[in-house]
Design a protein around this nucleic acid. Sequence first.
RNA 1: GGGCGCGUAGCUCAGUUGGUUAGAGCACCUCGUUUACACCGAGGGGGUCCGCGGUUCGAAUCCGUGCGCGCCCACCA
Length: 923
Amino acid sequence: MSESRKTDDPQMRTPERTEAQGEAQTRVRSVDPTALPKHFEALEVETRWDKVWQDSGIYHYDPSRPREETFVVDTPPPTASGSLHIGHVFSYTHADVVVRYRRMMGMNIFYPMGWDDNGLPTERRVQNYYHVRCDPNTPYEEGLKLEQASSKVRKKPARLISRPNFIEACFDLIKEDEEAFSETWHRLGLSVDWRQQYQTIDANSRRMAQRSFLDLWKKKEVYTSDAPTMWDVDFQCAIAQAEVEDRETPGAFHKIEFAVEGEAASFVIATTRPELLPACVGVTAHPEDERYKPFFGKRAVTPLFRAPVPIFPSEVADPEKGTGILMVCTFGDQTDVQWWRNEGLELRQVVGFNGRLRSVDFSEAPYESLDAEKANEAYGELAGKNLKQARAKIVEMLGDPAGSATGNGAPLQGEPEAISHAVKFFEKGDRPLELLPTRQWFCRLLDKKEQMLAKGEQIEWHPPHMWARYRDWTENLSLDWCLSRQRFFGVPIPVWYPLDAEGERDFDHPIVADLASMPVDPTTDTPPGYEEEQRGQPSGFVGDTDIFDTWFTSSLTPQISSHWGEDDDRHASLFPADMRPQGHDIIRTWAFYTIAKAMLHEDEVPWKNAMISGWILDPDRKKMSKSKGNVTTPLPLIEKYSADAARYWAASARLGTDTAFDENVWKVGKRLVTKMLNAGKFVLSQTGEVVPITAELDRAFVAKLKALVASATANHEVFQYANALQETESFFWTHFTDTYLELAKSRARAYADAEANPDQSFSAEEVALSGSAVASLRLGLSVLVRLFAPVLPYITDEVWSWSFAAESEGNAAKSVHVAAWPGEADFASVPEPAHEASFDIAVAALGAINKAKADAEVSMGREVNSLVLAGAADSLAVLEGVAEDVLGAARVSAHRFEEKASLGASEFEVVSIEFADKPERSA
RNA sequence: GGGCGCGUAGCUCAGUUGGUUAGAGCACCUCGUUUACACCGAGGGGGUCCGCGGUUCGAAUCCGUGCGCGCCCACCA
């Protein structure tokens, strides 16, 4: 820490700064290496620079600049639900690298940060953290203070708190979480404009989501419908298609015998859901299935409940599966819903919203039984049980011949056959989804597939094949978007329903809130034209208690940032955005819905580019996820290797590519940072006259550098930051530190030697050559620092600040991150080399001598008294132009070049070499 | 069952439109090293480019096919 403290004082870093002020500068301002930090103290550097960047406002969006100079990022608002995942560091770095490049290209960057705090993850975390449950019937408790639940408290049932108290608790917890995230983002060096922060739950976002709903209502794109919906019995909430995932789950085929009404015949169905037998409303088989053909049009009778149900043919039934004939229930799966609709079957809803079997009466419609008494007796054993318990019970009952509808003995045929099959779950849920008829709000999307595909095509996907994921999802969409959720912490649906004289809700004439009143909460706000006293009264009104699907709000992130509908100038400047960074797992949700919203509201695309990051897999190539317990948390790694190393690791992976986590890459990043520090110290401590770059080696080096800049720039332009980094890194080691630096070193030092030895005479030419080396070393460093800046913001600004900043004007004087990206201007005054191959020839010649030293097992620094080096005539001709540098670097005092025609281009051979005596070590 | 991506050194990955002897870093082996850097330097070993077949003067690259891995979708009685 002691060394690094010195760097706090900029005067210490550039000791000759004041000396050169005010007069024409004739000498390069070198820095005193002893005043520079010995080591890279990541924590200190990162804290210091983050503060500098925030204070200087270099990341601020400038609304006065025109749209075409502005680059707008639709940053993903992370779900603030506790802890950060290493995958966050990965994908957010990708976006930041792109942003930093564009900023250096002179773009006016709009880079906000949002927090996706509305929704289930927050609710669930609040439930666990405080061990509470929201109960809308519990009265509000003013000033309720909750504390993290102890393990003792957790053993008792969760405490019930009111809806407003629950929401307050959510707000409290997200505040903490968002601060923790924010800290990590700062540490990682994300160049966001922190003035542009939002939460998906804040008043503006709520207003924006409700405005969106109002617009869709006016356009007749939203509607309510009472229909079977996927339902999570734990969250007691409707779920959208996009939130569903399949999980391979053990199950069993149960073969159950049904009777045919009025006949001696019977058949056996196979089901994995025997507990839905009381909800059976029909039986179906393939129309061509000879086994069951005779039964079509007749009625089957279920065992236990003796319910007569129609037997009908259906193309969808697969004769190969199970027994080829199956029972239709309300509802076992999506095909049941189809049959139910097409055949006009009864609705027998035995599964309750809480996942337990409701009480029903088989003597009343829609239930029916040939023996209601026995049916009710059997069902009495099941009512109140959860689905798992009910399944066990009914299997037991089906094993008893008393339940048979045929008199053939036990309805259950043989042992259940264990299978493993995919079952639909809510992605955040623990129990399988049920299909329950409920009233929900939907947004029409099924009729817009073509337009959605057209919009998707207007977007550039990076990498391009990610377009296919969007296309496939859109083409295969089978349900409209279910917008309503029976939850608490989210944006309320801004709707009330009139009550008729009997107190029944009139769903056909909902009262939608007007814009001026938004954001509203219909559970506490009064609809226009009513008095609050009429709430819940006949001929009065009642507020919708549901909230929006969290994607309904987060699909508006571009509009939330652009203040759509509130500030037209700003909206015009920021919408559509230029880039949406995100993971490929949420193409079907976040990307899809965002495209939908932009289309529905303004017939626009939300952004021009979609930048899709891959996943971090654990070393066994499995996806890291909390449920698997293989998640790596980023902060300890950042502390161990530095933020720059973390970013190096992230930026090494190409877009869209899933990458196995490998700590070695962090190590390599750390090594690169150290090397940069040392190279910077060395180059900037060189002194020389300010002269043009003239020496052949220098010109050849600059030519290579120029090619690197062209290539890296081209890569960045197409979001290929990983390629840009790789070639820059490779150049840095191979052409800069390992070769050019070594080759130009002795010449660069000549001027300093001249100053130190005034007695010796140095020609003007020698001074010019020395200055040329110093100038091109500095040019190389300056260019490389800028090329690395998007990936390694800390070390690059540190090195930049030692000297380049003070020499710069305008933005570049503040920080490398607002300096100009390297380009033509940097190389304009440097002439092309006489020979294109000069640099490679010099490197090859030095390499040959080094190899001779390695073979002789002497040090690379060992002086050479005499050397005979052979090469082809062409090579030797080029070598002449750079020979002094080669011989200087190899410490050769006497040499002879010898022609050898058999050698290829850039190939040299040491014919003989004689080393000086090993120097005595000084005490 | 359909789609997308992937399979290259022990590990993590590059390999542009087909073109010398297939690359990098890490790891490994040998040697060296204190005037930028041991968070170093030089040198070295290591590959049936998943298998098979085809196109071609020439294939890691293009085509076909098989196998394996990951993801998405469909099915899921």
